[in-house]
């Protein structure tokens, strides 16, 4: 066998080492930020922190969690993630079901499909969208974070492909028993599609949690910023004028360890759902990309 040959054994050794280094490179920045967040202020400012906390303290987390601006942004992020995901899933499920029907069963199917797919190919761009939101008076409302992204065409396509794999006999049996489409969807299709629904929900959640640009342009009042937008202003733009008023807050918020703690809290929910996500997403991606 090839793997018993000497050159291949040498290759294997090198390969394992290389992949190990590569994996470490992928997580090292996160470990560094975690280490900084648990370190003492002086050590962090003097760049003494590598991958392990120096002068261990929870001070940065105390300050972060005592910052009402941070907590308010966290709450907005939770709201948009929960409501946004729920609404988006409901709309996508309701739309994917009719689109998964054959033309024989649903004549206008192709018309609808193109109506949605066209929006993936062409869009009005940022400025007309911005003007529309202004016209609709949706600035500074939670709706602007939830409604425009609710119809995810990509999720719709993934789900309709999944629905097509559901055995037709199940549906026919339900029809004969007198179930309508809505009933068939909720009591036949959804229970057998749980893995696909879990994947799409997790993706929607991650998407909402990470979204920052909509908050930045549509929230003129910083009190309505979701966490990602708040972090963008504090950590990337380093613009403290918008989010704090008290000078004592300013000192706390610009401190390096506090920034690290904020970054870490910002990504913590993703790290929590990640193991669940990983179990499903490989299937989801492959479902969309390399169909038989």
């Amino acid at each position: 066998m090839y793997y018993k040959s000497k050159p291949y054994k040498l290759f294997t050794g090198l390969n394992y080492t290389f992949l190990l280094v590569l994996s470490i490179i992928c997580v090292i920045p996160l470990i560094h930020i975690l280490a900084v967040s648990f370190s003492g202020k002086a050590a962090a400012n003097a760049n003494l922190v590598g991958l392990w906390p120096v002068q261990f303290t929870l001070d940065a987390y105390d300050k972060t969690l005592a910052n009402e601006n941070f907590l308010r942004a966290l709450w907005v992020a939770v709201q948009r993630t929960v409501f946004g995901t729920a609404l988006s899933m409901l709309i996508v499920v309701l739309a994917a079901y009719p689109l998964s029907k054959e033309k024989r069963q649903f004549k206008r199917r192709n018309l609808y499909t193109w109506f949605f797919v066209f929006t993936m190919l062409f869009n009005g761009g940022l400025i007309p969208f911005y003007m529309l939101i202004q016209e609709l008076n949706m600035m500074n409302t939670i709706w602007v974070l939830i409604l425009p992204g609710a119809v995810s065409v990509w999720n719709m396509i993934l789900l309709l492909n999944f629905f097509r794999g559901v055995p037709k006999e199940l549906e026919e049996a339900a029809f004969i028993d007198g179930a309508g489409h809505l009933r068939t969807l909720f009591s036949i299709y959804l229970p057998v599609s749980l893995p696909a629904l879990a994947t799409l929900s997790l993706f929607a959640m991650v998407g909402h949690w990470n979204s920052w640009f909509d908050g930045l342009i549509f929230m003129t009042d910083h009190k309505n910023y979701p966490l990602a937008t708040f972090l963008q202003t504090i950590i990337v733009q380093q613009d403290f004028s918008k989010v704090t008023v008290r000078p004592e807050d300013l000192e706390n918020i610009s401190q390096r360890t506090v920034k690290a703690a904020q970054i870490f809290i910002g990504m913590a929910p993703i790290l929590v759902v990640y193991p669940f996500l990983q179990r499903f997403f490989v299937k989801g991606i492959v479902l969309g990309a390399v169909k038989e």
Binding site: I91, T119, G124, G125, F129, L132, V151, L185
Partner: peptide, 28 residues
């Protein structure tokens, strides 16, 4: 089939508002 149309309605309305109306705004 009408029931199927009804199920698509929320997605159609949102897409019209947030995807197709901005395309009209391109006249700017």
């Amino acid at each position: 089939m009408l029931a199927l149309d009804a199920m698509l309605l929320p997605a159609v309305i949102l897409t019209l508002i947030f995807a197709y109306i901005p395309m009209g705004g391109l006249v700017v």
